[in-house]
Write a protein that binds this DNA or RNA. Structure first.
Length: 478
DNA sequence: ATGTTC
């Protein structure tokens, strides 16, 4: 990824948890980072602040190039970045603004059980057998060919439910009702299809996980009651995305846009920011393929949730109930007010979560008064959070997505062995299943920011409110 | 994140 540029940018702390980088040079808007100086990665080692500056040069960008408190270095755009472009005024879409794991996201399910009555080892043994994971193949579904895969790409979670994996109520609890409109399977390459055929209903590797958790602390009584969360309650959190299919789609369309940019007269300070106007053949092609990958990721989480629910039913007699499913890697066409006018924007959220405020019409009735649940997976062995959107938030109704890395995978693996980490987690009473030693070491908590501090910064910046803090009882890792 | 280097 190269060496970070010596960043010579002015950073003004204009409010608590709000740093501003005034526009200079080719920047069309300011940069705004919702964080403190303490949480901001060291510019000598991490290029994310320079990436916030680079994103501010994109054609059609409005308001600001935003970054969340968990910001760190990514491909082109920072992870934790939010950028919106005005579709009718030459605004671009950039695959790097979504990332390689298109529609990576989180689903949280609740069990009507207290942690004291959960036979955790038996549940974990069941999950160990039921959850396909790791870099290779193995999945809940085996698709017969392109025709069947296209039903997944068009139907997302709804298709999984139609096939008997879940119930209609689940779809109300999914962003966009479980299906992102505008999917165009014709823009998905043969290679992406090939990679996708054998991975629907699989966890993957890296920071993806399935955790059994318990509510440690309720921080907003009213919203927690609306979400069905109580102290001691058992939950299941699933963090995964669109696997090799989404990765291939990103690769394919970065290449297409890299070649097309010149024809549109677009120049960017970093090739990884390859982009095209939303209203161009290349822009539409990417958004159609991206929506297809989003639906694949949603079906993936739906299938894994059903597999986990089957395990809970066998072991405890109780099925799981879906609280919410939301992505943190997506570009969406949304309407927002800019300078007193409703504008159609392409909102890129990369390692950032949509956080709709109470009363928003896109929320289902059961969640409308409380606001959208925002699901924040912590690093392994640490807390996770449920947050909610707030009226008057910021960054086009967005907030953080997780703890955010501070060490590379290589650095983390050098610092601790997988065996030592497993022992430590088990010493903390956390059951670990099926993780490779290397994979475990790469995900060591010390490789991440403190999720409590990240959430405090997101709240302090006024982006969201904390509803509940969850702690892990057992983790299934790829 | 990723058939972890087309």
């Amino acid at each position: 990824m190269g060496i970070p540029k010596a960043v010579d940018v002015e950073v003004v702390e204009e409010a608590p948890f709000r740093l501003r980088v005034p526009a200079q040079g080719d920047m069309r808007v300011d940069g705004v980072v919702f964080t403190s100086h303490e949480l901001l990665p060291d510019p000598a080692e991490d290029g994310s602040l320079q990436q916030v500056v680079n994103v501010a040069t994109l054609p059609g960008i409005v308001e600001a190039s935003y970054a969340m408190p968990d910001v760190h270095w990514g491909y082109g755009f920072p992870i934790g970045g939010v950028a919106a472009t005005d579709v009718e005024r030459g605004g671009v879409v950039s695959p790097g603004g979504v990332g390689f794991d298109i529609s990576c996201g989180v689903r949280l399910l609740t069990a009507d059980l207290d942690r004291s009555e959960l036979p955790i080892e038996r549940v974990m043994d069941g999950l160990d057998r039921a959850v396909p994971r790791g870099a290779g193949s193995g999945a809940v579904w085996q698709l017969s060919g392109r025709a069947e895969l296209e039903r997944v790409l068009l139907g997302g979670s709804r298709y999984a439910v139609e096939r008997g994996h879940g119930e209609d109520r689940d779809l109300e609890r999914c962003e966009d009702g479980g299906v992102l409109a505008g999917a165009d399977p014709g823009q998905v390459s043969a290679r992406a299809v090939e990679r996708g055929l054998e991975q629907v209903g699989s966890l993957g590797s890296g920071n993806h996980f399935l955790e059994v958790q318990a509510v440690d602390e309720v921080l907003d009584d009213v919203a927690a009651a609306a979400f069905g969360l109580a102290p001691g309650q058992v939950c299941v959190m699933i963090h995964t995305g669109s696997r090799g299919l989404g990765h291939q789609i990103c690769t394919d369309h970065v290449r297409i846009m890299d070649r097309a940019m010149r024809a549109y007269g677009i120049s960017v300070p970093d090739r990884q920011l390859a982009c095209a106007p939303v209203e161009s053949p290349e822009g539409r092609a990417y958004l159609g393929a991206m929506a297809a990958a989003a639906n694949y990721g949603r079906a993936n989480r739906q299938l894994l949730a059903e597999a986990a629910s089957d395990v809970f039913e066998r072991v405890t007699g109780q099925r799981l109930s879906l609280l919410y499913d939301v992505s943190h890697n997506l570009a969406k066409i949304e309407e927002h007010e800019i300078g007193g006018e409703r504008r159609r924007l392409c909102v890129h959220r990369k390692g950032a979560t949509r956080a709709l405020p109470p009363g928003h019409p896109d929320l289902p009735p059961a969640l409308r008064d409380a606001g959208q649940p925002v699901l924040i997976p912590g690093s392994m062995g640490t807390a996770s959070y449920v947050l909610r959107g707030v009226v008057g938030g910021g960054a086009f109704h967005s907030t953080c997505h997780g703890a955010g890395r501070v060490q590379s995978r290589k650095q983390a693996a050098r610092a601790i062995t997988g065996g030592a980490l497993r022992k430590r987690l088990e010493g903390q009473g956390i059951a670990v299943r099926g993780a490779s030693a290397r994979g475990l070491a790469e995900e060591a908590p010390e490789a991440y920011k403190d999720v409590d501090a990240v959430v405090a910064a997101a709240e302090g910046a006024g982006l969201c409110r904390a509803v509940a803090r969850l702690v892990p009882l057992g983790v299934v890792k790829g």
